[in-house]
Design a protein around this nucleic acid. Structure first.
Length: 106
DNA sequence: CACCGATGTCCAA
DNA sequence: TTGGACATCGGTG
């Protein structure tokens, strides 16, 4: 069962519209903490997967980051495909269009 | 370019 | 209650 921290992470993640992506740092700031690592753990646990679009979360460097518990592998390929299906294209593991990053504070 | 510490949370013993 | 782990970030050499 999700903790209050995870609940905030998922709530903020659900606010991300389709076709947009967010970063661990931004998500962490939304949930009220400065540790992106904590968010990563919450997403890894992701009890609501795939109901929660955890694939819309990337690293602050606009890199795909990790997925499925690793930085590369079949899961990462799936992540990139899902994002591409939503209009978010990646190039060499880096977000091709940084403008696709959704910020909670416009 | 590469390495290390910092940061917040979760899990297991 | 204590220690280790994590899908990271940022600064420094």
């Amino acid at each position: 069962m999700p903790t209050s921290f995870e609940d905030r992470v998922y709530a903020a993640l659900k606010k991300v519209p389709r076709g947009r992506v967010t970063t661990y740092k931004i998500l962490a700031g939304q949930v009220g903490c400065c540790s992106a690592r904590a968010v990563g753990q919450a997403l890894k646990r992701n009890p609501f997967a795939p109901r929660v679009p955890c694939h819309r979360v990337i690293a602050s460097d606009l890199r795909i980051g990790g997925f499925g518990g690793r930085c590369s592998g079949p899961q990462i390929r799936r992540k990139r495909a899902l994002l591409a299906s939503e209009g978010v294209l990646f190039s060499k593991g880096v977000l091709a269009d940084p403008a696709r990053v959704f910020r909670f504070f416009p």
